[in-house]
Amino acid sequence: MALVVEVVRSGFVESRHLARMLTLDAAGRPAETHGAVAEPASPRSAMKPLQALGMVRSGLRLSGELLALACASHAGEPFHVDGVRKILAGAGLDESALRCPEDYPEDRAVTDRGRVYMNCSGKHAAMLATCVVNDWPLESYLEPPHPLQRAIRATVEELTGERMPASGVDGCGAPLFFVSMLGVARAFRTLAVSGEGGVFDAVRAHPQWTSGTHRPETALMRALPGLMVKVGAEGFQAFAYEDGRAGAIKVEDGAARARTTLTVAALRSLGLTSPELDELAVQRVYGGGRPVGELRIHPD
């Protein structure tokens, strides 16, 4: 059965979110499942580490913070924007080559708008850099038949162990894959165990580059230094620990607020914990500037 995340305010349950969860133990065996985890889901940006590995396999030469930025759904903080421009400059390009939509950054201290501020611009810059390395066309780099996208799809199918039953267009314009949660968790585990391309190490070592300084997934990775977490839109999140324990969660109605509660529960079910993680387990509801409730998983 699906999990139920309750939003409790002043002792009253005012909202409920249904969710799927799947975890794998260190040997890759399913440890806990809730909901229709075998059905195709849309992981959205949670697929970016897999896309980044596809680019690395195709010759992308990035490491450290910039490789983490290639996996990012970033907040548009100044260091994110500078990093995107650095990736582009390294390929002899500027932000006019980006084909992601223009956007405002999440960082409210920045009021500029443009493609470089869009949260997926790190991935797009890395895609363009990969095209330059291979002398592939730049204008059409987002089209499914493009050599870049074919290489990425092959990597996604290999790591998930699934042929894509369907594909679409993500919010940034890049191809979007639909896979099972088991496939996503399996792929994240492979990234952790193999260490291929340095993707796992880059994300967990530089969480603020993959996300943002004050984002919940950054806090999760800082709470467990051996952990990689990647968020996706519409309530998706996937993770892997350095020893191969892994998992994925999906909030059925797409509510982002339930993701951290579910991810902490998934980590705890695998025996992963720390004092910092215990603090993140309590997601508070506020009224008048003070805590008046919390998010919790229904005990049944």
Rank of each mutant, 00 (worst) to 15 (best):
M1P: 15
V5S: 02
V7A: 05
R16I: 10
R20M: 15
M21G: 05
M21S: 04
L22S: 06
L22A: 07
L24N: 04
A26Q: 07
R29P: 03
H34W: 15
A36I: 06
V37P: 00
E39S: 15
A41T: 14
A46N: 05
M47D: 09
K48L: 13
A52S: 13
A52M: 11
G54V: 06
G54M: 09
R57G: 02
S58T: 06
R61L: 01
C71K: 00
G76V: 07
V81H: 02
G83I: 05
V84N: 00
K86C: 06
I87D: 01
E95N: 10
S96R: 15
R99K: 13
R99C: 10
C100R: 02
P101C: 14
E102D: 08
D103V: 12
D107F: 08
D107W: 08
V110D: 08
D112N: 14
R113M: 12
R115F: 00
V116C: 10
V116T: 07
V116M: 12
Y117N: 06
Y117P: 05
Y117H: 11
M118I: 08
C120Y: 01
C120Q: 02
K123N: 03
K123L: 13
K123W: 06
A126G: 09
L128I: 07
A129F: 05
D135M: 08
P137L: 09
L138D: 08
E143P: 03
P144V: 02
P145W: 13
H146T: 10
L148C: 03
Q149S: 13
I152P: 00
R153L: 11
T160D: 08
A166L: 14
P175Y: 01
L176K: 11
V179A: 11
S180W: 00
R186F: 03
G195K: 11
E196Y: 01
D201A: 15
T210F: 04
H214S: 01
H214I: 02
R215Q: 14
A219G: 01
R222T: 10
A223R: 02
G226N: 10
M228W: 06
K230A: 04
A233I: 05
Q237F: 06
Q237I: 06
A238W: 00
A240N: 07
Y241W: 15
D243N: 04
D243M: 04
G244M: 12
G247V: 12
I249Y: 06
E252L: 15
A256Q: 12
L262C: 08
V264Q: 00
A266G: 09
R268C: 12
P275R: 01
E279M: 13
E279D: 13
L280P: 04
Q283S: 14
Q283F: 02
V292N: 00
V292Q: 00
E294Y: 02
R296N: 11
D300L: 15
